[in-house]
Design a protein around this nucleic acid. Sequence first.
DNA 1: GTCGATTAGTTGACAAGGTCAACTAATGGG
DNA 2: CCCATTAGTTGACCTTGTCAACTAATCGAC
Lengths: 314, 314
Amino acid sequence: MATTDPSLAPTVASFRQFNRAYTRFLGTLNDRYLHTDFSLAEGRVLYELATHRSLQAREISDVLGLDGGYLSRILAKFKKAGLVSCTRSKDDRRAADLRITRQGRAVVRTLNLRADKQASSVLEKLSAHQRREFSRALSAVEQIVFDREPAAASIVLRNHRPGDMGMVVHLEGAGYVEQFGWDNTFEALAARIVADFLEKFDPVRERCWIAEMDSRHVGHVFLVQHPERHDTAKLRLLYVDPAARGMGLGQKLVDECVQFARNAGYRKITLWTQGILTAAHRIYQAAGFRLMREEPHHSFGKDLVGQTWEMELV
Amino acid sequence: MATTDPSLAPTVASFRQFNRAYTRFLGTLNDRYLHTDFSLAEGRVLYELATHRSLQAREISDVLGLDGGYLSRILAKFKKAGLVSCTRSKDDRRAADLRITRQGRAVVRTLNLRADKQASSVLEKLSAHQRREFSRALSAVEQIVFDREPAAASIVLRNHRPGDMGMVVHLEGAGYVEQFGWDNTFEALAARIVADFLEKFDPVRERCWIAEMDSRHVGHVFLVQHPERHDTAKLRLLYVDPAARGMGLGQKLVDECVQFARNAGYRKITLWTQGILTAAHRIYQAAGFRLMREEPHHSFGKDLVGQTWEMELV
DNA sequence: GTCGATTAGTTGACAAGGTCAACTAATGGG
DNA sequence: CCCATTAGTTGACCTTGTCAACTAATCGAC
């Protein structure tokens, strides 16, 4: 029965401690649902009704996993209080179409207001930076605990802001070391690239895109002026975090670069990459790049094959 | 009633969503407490008894916030099952000293094992990197939601690893921009400093310390060889995150530097800082540095006063 | 069409978890 | 010594939620 990996132990311990503490926290939070006459289950039913034009009891009990009998009584209470109206369904005369009434909506508004105020009271003392950190942490926990597949739609591209270059170096450094066992001279290279980028940054001819998912930095790419040739752009530091793989993010980032380069008047884009980064090659190929040269070299503590890819812009 | 800051709204929304989801998660998690014959409350009482040699009912109900009558019944059940023994207290013959029995401990072990297994089942598919991220995220959430004062004891100093330099740049870049309104040329400078550090790193004469609190990077400092003078060390990039202020971390980091410099045979340590960083000055002063020179300069988008501090090592 | 299986919703019975107040017995301060 | 207080127990009761039996409508197969 050697089911549990012992190296997981510290994580398990903090996870359990967190769960204990959060159980207590949510207990007081949901205590007599925000000091109203509603139970948590009732609140959830009302919320469900408020977010749909019309529902049947069946659908509610399915979604919320409530016992049919229990739900029936909750709905009876709501009907009596005038919070929902109930008409026999046209299609199926066993079922009843439930709709929230004007009063029902008023109650939901009150509940929402209270819940918002309650949440704010915990969060109001946070600085803007802490707020971002907090959102990021919540989404990280959710993703792992609920095994949530992140939605591609929730990824936002934006330009760089202070602090971003550091994250770029961090992700590149930690990522390639973990995945390919490179040493930290690679991190040094990344740091130098971003330092150069910031210092010589020409907003008309150069750009950096940061991909964020729920405020978390999950990818990036740079397009910069080639140091020697004025009509050539260089694509650098393309990165997609493991948390956001398989969502076409790499392609999206490269496409942004190509489009920008075209608009900026470049005639050619070039990039340098490594032979082992096959996932990236597919992206470059799909975007229209072609492999021009390969040369072996020893860098980052490994024997690697450097590749130069190019793309002519029409 | 304009109590709530509107810019907090997105954070509040994700916080509430998280709470809803976590309520459900903990509900299934604690459902009939791990499929044993114990309720969650019973489990907590037993846990409390297992972690203390001897307790009185009063203490338990205080700590766990349980109703006295309810607790009494829970304890009656435990006594009947032989999980706790109960002797009238010597000091106060109203009260009873409760102790967990051998059988009781066996039950706790079983519960713990199950809880561990359950937690592992959520976490086992994580990579080492994700595990660290997860621990970090949990501790960030805890700190904000439970307003936990971090314990100075929980801060660990270690040397740099891959990914750390990026975090250094990130924290410096985001931190000084947020606090003092500097522009991102400062981040560029930080990136260049860490790139130089990694490339020329001499482990005998140079060092970087990373301060971690619950796996989160909350501070750092560098001690490097002075570029011109062989007998002089340079202290660079001292940083203490707002989350770890007031715990003497800055002092601890500087002291580490001084001690290392002494052991490495340096005769002098020098550092360059800015006039507005008064909190840091106190630390340097306390460590034995003296302000040598000041000169105004325009950098990072601001008018600043550069300061050179030095310390002779005996 | 019609018959049996299925489904929507309701209802009664009941169990688990938890609260409240009254009670006993011991303590402790004036 | 007396009265207010405290530790713990117990009975009454409430809320939440489950289960199974029930009615009424529907659906599919023949």
